[in-house]
Structures are given as structure tokens and as C-alpha cells.
Computed example of a mutant assay.
Amino acid sequence: MTQTRGWRLVLAPRDAPQSVRRFAKRARQRRLRAALPWLVALAVAALLGAAAVVVFATPVLGVERIDVAGVSTLSAGAVRRAAGVPDGTPLARVDLRAVERRVRQLKPVRTVAASADFPHTLRLRIEERTAVAAVVKVGGFVLLDAEGVGYLPVEAAPAGLPVLRLADPEPGDATTMAALTVLAALPPFLRAVMTALVAESPTRIRLELTGSRTVVWGDATENEAKVRVLEFTQIAPGRTLDVSAPGVVVER
């Protein structure tokens, strides 16, 4: 039978020869050097584990403040409530994309960016919608942005904001988008005398002007040509000018 010789490290007795003690010392040093990387790795792993527990499972680095910037229509409190992040929630565990989705449910919010600012602050940067018109509604108005989103009820149309009459303004709605296209094409001289832009369908748009005057606009095409006609045409009070086909203008 073949025997396998096993080696083991033992301490040399005090009365052992000097050469034996030196050999034993060098052996211990080699063994310690071999084990040192593993000891360091275990220590680092232990530290990382403890740090992870502190960061992800305790309120030591929890949310103490939600900083809201960019709001004027909304209150910072309304945004914080929509964010839905309780005090003390570990900041590293906050799902920033989920927070953004919840805040975007507030209609006045056009965009939102959430970020973590350690150790204790959640930052929310808001871009609110900008009104381009006020749409007549029962009991007041609703502010409408350039994307066709009605986002804020108001009792009265803000000064200087055009008034639209639309049955059901919605983003992507053909009538809403046609009305916004025409509105964007109107120069200041028309906006100054317009009391309302009425859109009954994408092809039935008209301008109501001061002095009981009306401009039949038609659809949202040839807007520049229609504007040029109105630059050089006077409309008498109580009269209607049809520029829906700008090459053939009809007054009645």
C-alpha cells in the first residue's frame, strides 16, 4: 500500500536548533501571507454588509426632506403628497421612476425629474404646463396647454389669454388640435380683437371678434393666406367675413 505523507506545521521547541526555529518562523510567515488576502476580503465583505444594512434597511439614511422646485400653479405640499414617500424611507430604496410616475398624474405637471441627494433629501424638479388658451366650461374655464391638455379649472379667463370654445378638448383630438393650430397662426392684431375662437369640428372653425363681427375660418389649412386677407380687409360691425377659401372671400 502506498502511503501519502502529510505535512503539518508545528512550533519548534525552545531547545530546538536555531536553524529549525528559523524554518518554523518562515513557514508561519508564509502561511500568514497566504491567508492575509482572505482575511482582508472577509473584513471588507463584513463592512460592506453592515453598510448595506444601514443604507437599505434602516432610517439612518432615510428621507427627511422632499425638496420641490419649479412649481407655481401647484403647491409644494400637493407634489409631496403625490410623490407618496413616507418620512424615514431609506433614500437608497426610493424608486425614483415610480415617484415620477405618481407626480405626473397631477395634470399641471408636464415633466418631473426625481433624484436622491444623500444623506436625507429627495429632490423633485417640476416643469409645469403653460397655458395657451382658456376653454369655456360650465361654471368657468379650464386652462389648456399647447398639447391639448386641459389641466387647471379657473373661475375666469386670465387677462391676455385667448378664449376657446370646444366641446371636449383632449390631446390628440382632431378638433382640439385644429383649433390650436389656428390659434398659433393668429398674429397679435387678430388676437387683440378676438373674443373667442370657436371650433365645432376640424373643418368648422370661426373667430368671434369685438363689435359682433365674425370670421369664418374653415379648417386649419392655408392659415397664412387667411391672415393676409384679414390684414387688408375691414369688417363692419355685425358683419361676417368668410375666409375659409382665401382665394374667394365672402362677406355677409
Rank of each mutant, 00 (worst) to 15 (best):
L152F: 04
Y151L: 05
A131M: 02
G238K: 10
G88T: 11
R93S: 14
G238H: 10
A82H: 04
E170Q: 15
P90S: 09
D117P: 00
A35G: 02
A236C: 01
A245T: 10
I66D: 00
S212V: 05
R65M: 06
A76W: 03
V99W: 03
V103K: 02
R228Q: 13
H120K: 12
R101N: 04
I66R: 00
D95P: 03
A98S: 10
A45W: 01
R26V: 06
R228Y: 02
G139T: 07
K226V: 05
L143N: 01
E231I: 05
G172V: 07
A27N: 06
E128K: 02
V109G: 02
R22C: 02
G84K: 11
A134F: 00
P13T: 14
G160H: 03
A92R: 04
Q105P: 00
D67G: 04
G70Q: 12
V20G: 00
A34G: 12
L152M: 11
R28Y: 07
A174M: 06
D168P: 00
Q3A: 14
T233N: 09
A52S: 11
E100P: 01
R33H: 10
T181W: 02
V135H: 07
L11Q: 10
V248K: 09
A12R: 10
A43H: 05
G238W: 09
A184F: 07
T210Q: 14
G62E: 08
P90C: 09
E208G: 05
T130D: 12
G6T: 15
R191A: 10
Q3N: 12
F141E: 01
I126D: 07
G160Q: 04
S201Y: 03
A12S: 15
E251H: 04
G77D: 14
A52Q: 06
E208S: 07
R125T: 13
R204Y: 04
A12K: 09
G70L: 10
F23C: 04
R21I: 00
R213W: 08
L152V: 03
E147A: 14
L166S: 05
E100V: 03
V250M: 13
N223W: 06
T89K: 06
E127K: 10
P237E: 10
V135T: 06
R165T: 09
I235T: 02
F118V: 09
R104L: 15
W217E: 04
R110Y: 11
T4Y: 02
R252A: 01
G70S: 07
F56G: 13
V138L: 07
G148R: 06
R14F: 00
P119T: 05
G88W: 11
A133K: 02
L32Y: 08
L61F: 15
P90M: 09
L74M: 13
V136N: 02
F189I: 05
V10Y: 01
L124T: 01
